[in-house]
Design a protein around this nucleic acid. Structure first.
Lengths: 353, 353
DNA sequence: GCAATGCATCATTGCGCTAAGATATGCGCA
DNA sequence: TGCGCATATCTTAGCGCAATGATGCATTGC
């Protein structure tokens, strides 16, 4: 074999997909014109525009976003971490975020932390490997590492569903403690003398805990009764458990005449138990839920609850986040906290005086 | 300015993040050793392994998966399209898929098609731009284009929640028509003489439609009564609407003594309406739901329903899909359909003779 | 009539990494 | 001692594209 002066080309993995170069050849233009056409069609003359368009169509060309992201040193991806996909609260918010981001040409990388901050940290670490354009977390509680990684990533970060500290730059949510206060106030106004709070896994569901704390502080301040918080463990049969818990509480303290539930599912359990035991709602026991889930308005009696603006949170957060992603200039990212509020929906499980 | 023989380097966007080269320099090895260490640590000697590990730690090096994916011509991403994120059926399945894929080092790109096949097509098109390692769709109904794009993408595709044709290679689900048949049989065995089917948006929710069709075929075959399907429009107040619908149906045909619901939420509406009107369940009206949602076992009376194996679907599908992604050899991807079945959970809204 | 200007198009470089193939190193065995 | 072989490490060439700055070409102003 004669010595070859030039090393011959290596075996390359072939991707068989059409590339921009293929399009360029077919359209008889340079690759950069194709690139330009895809990014800013108005900057290309109409004549070439048509040729390129046709070439793309005949080749069924699909741009390779991975290559694009590498070249541009930024990807059109937004990483979202929520505590639980199955929780319909977050699902609606994610849905809204998806719809906004999609319009702007961004895709969502999604994962759930299972209410575990350490897991959230791992997820953020993994997601950062994709150099996402932005990151969305749930709530304000994050590990030091999570905060550190995000800070040094230099990308816009959003927090949703809660307001508080530390802020990572942009928060869209509501004051969870105020939810607890509002619910208690509503029950007191309806004549309740002793209101308890019923929650699930308040140790890990920080937002529910803030609601409980808001309730507790308001109860103490009201001077009517001491706060009492029941914290149920997570459970497949949580709806039933809620019923048992309220029955037990009322048995041990017959003066209880109001209950604030961490979410509507618990409230449903309470209502069903009341029905089973012939406890009159709201006269003997008033109930406030949280979430305004689908079934809330058709329980018996219809459930008084608090409605967070699930979709609005996702929409506004994503709108601002994308704006920040586009601006690329982190000086234009002032710390911002948007309180979208919540709404008390008085129905028939509470009295209105 | 004198003519320069070599063009000087252009201004480059700088990413400031540590790169593999930085790690290599610090560890005093070649970049490919770092790369190898990250991909197959066991192939690197212990001495170098430690040096590289230390360098990575001190630099807080985060590998750039985008560059990696480009070089390897494949990404560790799996695209998932579900009809609705907010639907807790799919949420559980996605949760299971996420947990499996995460362990294998894959990330999920997620989007919802809103039960629109055209939208699904658009999503698939967009997702393919990321050259995902695999794609997961819901159900068997897809546009020609969707099928074409996926076929020519040369990556493993999974379909979940239904079995049928066309198969795109791997299906994990159950026979939805059999669900309808099973529910009807159960009601007939309990003594029902006239059973109707209550659904929502059967035109777009193909799987619910297959269940309805299974019911219809079985009703006709039984010779007891003609099938009757009520198809409600989608609606915020669907639970209430379900109640109204069943009341109207029973008013116009008093012989109706059984109803099969497309999902447990509808069933809940039916039960609440029955309670409101004093219709005894199951004696006067038997009810079967679908989904076995959280509240199903604590409705009054506890709801007889059909439980799909939501998590199992996600788990098995993802396990096989990832296996196929790793194999890289599409000849090892035989057409496969796994029926994970479903389970009738008899509770107290139906009679058992 | 010629420079100055604006605009459309192009050539070129490298984003950070993987993986093929080349080279070095160590080991067993004749 | 020397050869073959296996294993560890390195050199190198792109992956497909974005974006920089250069080039060509038409238009305008003086």
């Amino acid at each position: 074999m004669e010595p070859n002066s030039k090393p011959k080309s290596r075996a390359r993995r072939n991707t068989q997909r059409a590339t921009m170069l293929d399009v360029a050849h077919l359209a008889d233009v340079s690759p950069s014109t194709v690139s330009l056409y895809l990014r800013r069609p108005e900057a290309v003359s109409e004549k070439l525009r048509d040729k390129v368009k046709q070439a793309i169509d005949t080749l069924h060309y699909v741009p390779n976003r991975i290559a694009g992201s590498l070249a541009a040193a930024r990807s059109r991806t937004i990483a979202v971490v929520i505590p639980s996909i199955a929780n319909s609260f977050f699902a609606r918010t994610v849905e809204a975020m998806q719809s906004i981001s999609e319009k702007a040409g961004y895709n969502l990388l999604l994962a759930n932390s299972e209410y575990d901050l350490k897991r959230e940290e791992e997820l953020v670490r993994t997601f950062l490997e994709w150099s996402p354009a932005g990151v969305v977390l749930t709530g304000c509680d994050h590990t030091e590492n999570t905060q550190g990684m995000l800070a040094s990533a230099g990308i816009p970060v959003g927090q949703m569903w809660d307001l508080g500290s530390p802020s990572l730059g942009l928060q869209v949510g509501f004051d969870n403690a105020a939810v607890g206060r509002t619910a208690l106030q509503h029950l007191h106004q309806g004549g309740c003398q002793r209101v308890i709070y019923l929650g699930v896994r308040l140790d890990v569901d920080h937002r529910a805990r803030y609601r409980a704390e808001g309730y507790a502080a308001a109860a103490s301040a009201s001077g009517r009764h001491a706060p009492c918080i029941i914290d149920l463990p997570n459970n497949e049969h949580i709806v039933q458990e809620a019923g048992k818990a309220i029955a037990a509480a009322m048995a041990s303290d017959p003066l209880i005449d109001g209950v604030i539930c961490s979410n509507d599912s618990l409230a449903l359990g309470v209502l069903l138990e009341a029905q089973r035991r012939g406890i009159r709602v709201p006269e003997r026991l008033s109930v406030v839920g949280f979430g305004d889930l689908d079934f809330a308005e058709c329980t018996i009696p219809p459930l008084t609850t608090i409605r967070p603006h699930r979709q609005q949170i996702g929409r506004r957060l994503m709108e601002i986040l994308i704006e920040r992603c586009e601006s690329q200039d982190s000086h234009e990212w002032p710390e911002q906290a948007i309180d979208v509020g919540f709404e008390l929906i008085p129905r028939n499980t509470t009295r209105i005086i």
